[in-house]
Design a protein around this nucleic acid. Structure first.
Length: 476
DNA sequence: TAGCTCGTTGGACAA
DNA sequence: TTTGTCCAACGAGCT
């Protein structure tokens, strides 16, 4: 009789789970285990909104495992120690897991693999999270890609459709006497119930992931190419957190999109977004220092603001006086998520108009996003700052008023998240400070009383950013 | 090797 | 109101 530990991490699903499928096929006993160990990751430990998601996702996984005759064993503490205890107590022969790609996780897993292999266990890891793992795609000269388009062309040429693994119908019961901690003892939920609104928006877990995918395929995907840019509508798949926690795999998502009668443009555009997720992992793996250092070293000398605390707080709270920025920051706070276009706009505003270091923004997103992902977050912020791979040219500074008028022309998004402006007419919704007194009065807006004036002059701060970028250019 | 082409997401301004 | 051009030049990646 052989026993394997199936160590769950960012692969909280039963279907298309290679480590699980292998464990079930090779061993009579399988111990599904999740270890809450939040010290390995240092500054990038799971936090805030992610912990809320994790709590519910683990609860869902536990239920599904129970319905197959098994259970999910929950534990916390040092990973090696926890594994060691279970290994010796239950005569475990093998440990299987699906790979993670964060620099800290790679180091930890490598060390664990060595340790337990030396002890005579079979230790195997699998790819569950990506179409192509970061080291499998290279340029003709075998260097990593730094530009998305050639990277993605290469992936497409190699083929991106992958076979799926079925969910095991039945799992062996846990060894007798093995009962884990309850989910509550992990204390993942913040006792301050700031995440109350999340329940209305998200269903974490594998079932929730497939429900979100179905909803996307039933409607949204058919206008994805243009609809994805409109924050006031459900124009995107909203799968990011499900994908991050591995409740669904990119293979499953691509296969499902392929089955739909969707226009080529919409399907390809969406699948290329999965490609960006892959590209982010490629970059993080090959350039791990980019989690807090610029990829482009010129930016080490960028004159970021030093005394930014008050401005950062206004940005975080959605009190900048720029309606689209405030709407985005409030959507983030209330739902743990923000529309992608708005993420770019609020990031550009923080970095360029306020000249606050992109890491401050990255850290706030890390705490508040349910889909916080080190690869995507790092790539996104560096892209906006201009210091990353395939970055926005420095002169490309979003004007949040223009962006609002272009992508939230009807104003649904701003009206929803900045209700104090709900009665503003379209013409001035994105720039209330320019509205005539009678328009403001009619809309019940009293500037600096119930809605702030813009905290910076957009034109002046844009010019200041351009000058700062010029400064580092001249250094080289 | 050298040369060529191209680069997610924009804004300001002029015509 | 819409469309075209410029912004500045660099380096990635291919041939």
């Amino acid at each position: 009789m052989s026993t394997a530990i199936l160590w769950f991490r960012q692969d909280l699903r039963l279907a298309d789970n290679p480590a699980l499928a292998e464990a079930v096929s090779q061993h009579q006993h399988v111990i599904p285990l999740y270890i809450h160990s939040n010290t390995d990751a240092g500054e990038w430990a799971l936090s805030g909104a992610s912990l809320w998601w994790l709590h519910h996702s683990l609860t869902a996984l536990k239920h599904s495992l129970q319905s197959t005759g098994s259970d999910l064993l929950l534990d916390q503490g040092k990973v090696q120690q926890v594994l060691e205890e279970i290994v010796s107590k239950y005569k475990v022969n093998a440990i299987y897991w699906n790979r993670q790609y964060e620099p800290w996780a790679i180091n930890r897993d490598k060390q664990l693999k060595e340790h337990f292999t030396q002890k005579g266990l079979e230790v195997k890891s699998f790819n569950a999270a990506l179409i192509n793992e970061p080291w499998t795609i290279t340029t003709k000269t075998e260097t990593p890609y730094r530009v998305f388009t050639p990277y993605w062309k290469n992936c497409l040429a190699a083929g991106i459709d992958r076979p799926l693994l079925d969910q095991p119908e039945k799992l062996p019961a846990l060894p007798k006497g093995l009962t884990g901690a309850s989910i509550e003892t992990l204390k993942l939920l913040d006792p301050i119930n700031w995440h109350a609104g999340f329940n209305d928006v998200w269903i974490p877990g594998e079932e929730g992931a497939h429900a979100a995918l179905t909803e996307f395929l039933d409607g949204t995907v058919n206008d994805y190419d243009t609809g994805r840019d409109v924050p006031g509508t459900t124009g995107t798949s909203r799968l990011s957190a499900h994908l991050h926690f591995g409740e669904i795999s990119p293979r499953q998502v691509i296969a499902a999109v392929r089955r739909e009668q969707t226009s080529e443009a919409d399907a390809n555009r969406y699948i290329s977004e999965i490609g960006w997720r892959e590209f982010a992992h490629h970059l993080l793996f090959h350039y791990p220092h980019t989690i807090d250092q610029p990829l482009n070293s010129k930016f080490e000398h960028f004159p970021w603001r030093q005394d930014f605390d008050l401005d950062l707080a206004r940005w975080q709270q959605g009190q900048t006086g720029i309606p689209l920025v405030d709407a985005g920051m409030r959507e983030l706070w209330h739902t743990g998520w923000m529309h992608n276009r708005v993420r770019m706009v609020v990031a550009s505003f923080l970095i360029k108009n306020l000249q606050v270091h992109w890491l401050e923004g990255a850290r706030w997103f890390w705490d508040t996003l349910v889909d916080a992902d080190l690869a995507s977050n790092t790539m996104g912020w560096q892209w906006c700052a201009g210091s990353g791979a395939d970055a926005a040219p420095y002169f490309r500074i979003f004007n949040p008023v223009t962006q609002g008028e272009r992508f939230d022309g009807a104003g649904d998004y701003v009206r929803k998240w900045v209700p104090e402006l709900a009665k503003m007419p379209k013409k001035f919704l994105h720039k209330p400070s320019e509205a005539p007194a009678e328009v403001l009065q009619e809309a019940g807006v009293v500037l600096d009383e119930n809605y702030p004036s813009p905290m910076v002059d957009l034109k002046q701060s844009r010019q200041a950013a351009l000058d700062a970028y010029k400064e580092i250019k001249e250094l080289s």
